[in-house]
């Protein structure tokens, strides 16, 4: 672990991450819930044509022979 950071991570930024993470968790939870409700009611919109991938990577290396 390299403690000699060459830029300031910001003390306030380090401390507040606990709260930001809690809110993020809540956002993710409620989004997921809304999605499930919509799915149940048949209101879920089909995925738009999107140029960006999802966060989870489809491992492309597995398709290629070594």
């Amino acid at each position: 672990m390299m403690y000699f950071l060459y830029f300031d991570p910001g003390l306030g930024a380090m401390i507040i991450q606990t709260i930001i993470a809690a809110v993020a968790g809540f956002i993710l939870f409620s989004k997921n819930l809304m999605y499930k409700i919509k799915l149940f009611l048949g209101l879920a919109k089909p995925q738009e044509d999107d140029i960006f991938d999802d966060l989870d990577l489809e491992d492309k290396s597995k398709d290629q022979p070594e």
Binding site: Q17, T18, A21, A22, G25, I27, L28
Partner: peptide, 8 residues
Amino acid sequence: GLLNIVES
């Protein structure tokens, strides 16, 4: 928690 921040 960290992953929540990244994901959101």
